[in-house]
């Protein structure tokens, strides 16, 4: 349930507080209401239940994606 999935910001709308992020090649619209920091396309966000809960370093996001890919494949 506390399953977080990192997504790369593709586009965003600050006024309406949403962003489109890409994870596993799938694009999804998520809420960015909870994020204090500046967000720009290319940033990685940790997404949980349709909302970004934090901004992450690009360095590590890719590895987590691979891990989730495996887990999702196993389901």
């Amino acid at each position: 349930m506390c399953l977080g999935i990192p997504g790369k910001v593709v586009s965003l709308n600050q006024a309406e507080q949403w962003a489109v992020v890409e994870s596993f090649g799938v694009r999804k619209k998520i809420g960015i209401d909870l994020i204090d920091e500046e967000i720009a396309p290319g940033d990685y966000l940790m997404v949980h239940a349709g909302y970004a809960i934090g901004k992450i370093d690009q360095m590590d996001a890719q590895v987590t994606l691979e891990m989730w890919e495996e887990i999702l494949d196993a389901e």
């Binding site: 349930m1 909870l34 239940a49």
Partner: peptide, 9 residues
């Protein structure tokens, strides 16, 4: 149903 991670949503 959930912990602090889920409640804000």
């Amino acid at each position: 149903v959930g912990f602090e991670t889920t409640t804000p949503a």
